[in-house]
């Protein structure tokens, strides 16, 4: 094969570029591999996207790829039926009302706690941290019955909260925060711990307080980790079905998009084709969040923050 060998990576970049990789996967082959893998990864999604524009009868009789050749028989019926069938405006709003605080609260509290776990000394620190790691493995289903009972006792039900003028979403915010915290603390404290200790020492010498160090040094340096965490927590909450069903399931005014969409499908699987359209509708917001935050995953965020 006469493939143009990629020119050796210029000496100023931080790239990992072993010569054998550059030689064999040079230029053209690298691009073929990368694009090939990506396209293969997208096939299931593309299949669903095309299916969502097909007639129900066609869906059950032939594969989605047959729709790519004439005669073209695409339809918007699945989408218009989905919009007509339910009040998606309300549930879209609810999803935002649930997801934003249920992301902000655990990420912020986790950042506080992770900072203490990584850079403060207190009795029992290591054991508490290990217990948190252990809690990652507690299946959520386990906690539903005791927590629901407590919520009712404490008046933390959507109906009661609305009656006393508080947001009916509070139970979901707290539940998602409680469930999301172990992972958030684990991820962030590992990241915080990896920050060079020189940073903290020089800041202390300069007389900076704990808050200053946290807000001016730790947080700015941890933007990639926090951005990743925000994305994951947001996605988990946005796509959550189980927690929402258990804690506010019966209340339509509080139901997020996932609950509304599942209700679209009849209990015997009729309107099955609506789910294909619904899947794409529910993907829009998470994708926008990811695309708008991914620019924070910048190369070498730590480079240059500590002198030689």
């Amino acid at each position: 094969m006469t493939i143009a060998v990629a020119s050796p990576t210029s000496s100023t970049t931080a790239r990992f570029s072993p010569r054998w990789l550059s030689d064999r996967l040079g230029g053209f082959v690298l691009h073929v591999v990368v694009i090939g893998l990506t396209v293969a990864w997208m096939v299931p999604t593309i299949g669903l996207l095309i299916t969502s524009f097909r007639l129900p009868a066609d869906i059950s009789n032939s594969g989605w790829w047959t729709a790519l050749s004439p005669p073209f028989k695409f339809t918007l019926d699945n989408y218009s039926q989905m919009f007509a069938a339910s009040n998606l405006g309300q549930s879209l709003f609810n999803s935002f009302m649930i997801s934003i605080p249920a992301t902000v609260i655990p990420v912020t509290l986790a950042a506080f706690a992770a900072y203490a776990f990584a850079w403060m000394k207190f009795p029992g620190r290591d054991w508490i941290f290990l217990a948190l790691v252990g809690l990652l493995a507690v299946p959520l289903q386990l906690t539903f019955i005791p927590v629901t009972t407590e919520f009712v006792k404490l008046g933390l039900t959507p109906q009661h909260l609305t009656a006393i003028g508080l947001p009916p979403f509070i139970p979901l915010w707290l539940a998602h925060a409680g469930y999301g915290l172990p992972f958030s603390i684990y991820l962030l404290s590992n990241f915080f711990r990896a920050l060079p200790s020189d940073l903290f020492e020089s800041a202390e010498i300069d007389g900076a307080g704990t808050l200053t160090v946290f807000f001016r040094i730790v947080l700015p340096l941890s933007v990639p980790a926090i951005a990743s965490l925000v994305i994951f927590q947001f996605l988990w909450v946005w796509n959550d079905l189980l927690v929402a069903l258990i804690y506010v399931g019966g209340v339509a005014t509080v139901a997020p998009v996932t609950v509304t969409l599942v209700n679209l499908v009849g209990s015997y699987g009729q309107n099955y084709q609506l789910l294909t359209a619904a899947a794409f509708f529910s993907m829009i917001v998470p994708l926008v969040v990811f695309l708008s935050l991914q620019r924070y995953f910048v190369r070498g965020i730590l480079a240059g923050s500590v002198k030689g």
Binding site: W41, G47, L48, L241, T258, A279, M283, L287
Partner: peptide
């Protein structure tokens, strides 16, 4: 390409199962 590989993460598990039942 990273966004495209990440895309399935944005899909709820209900939708993921629908997709793979077609696969």
């Amino acid at each position: 390409v990273k966004s495209l590989i990440f895309m399935p993460m944005a899909i709820s598990s209900v939708a993921l199962v629908v997709i793979w039942k077609f696969m």
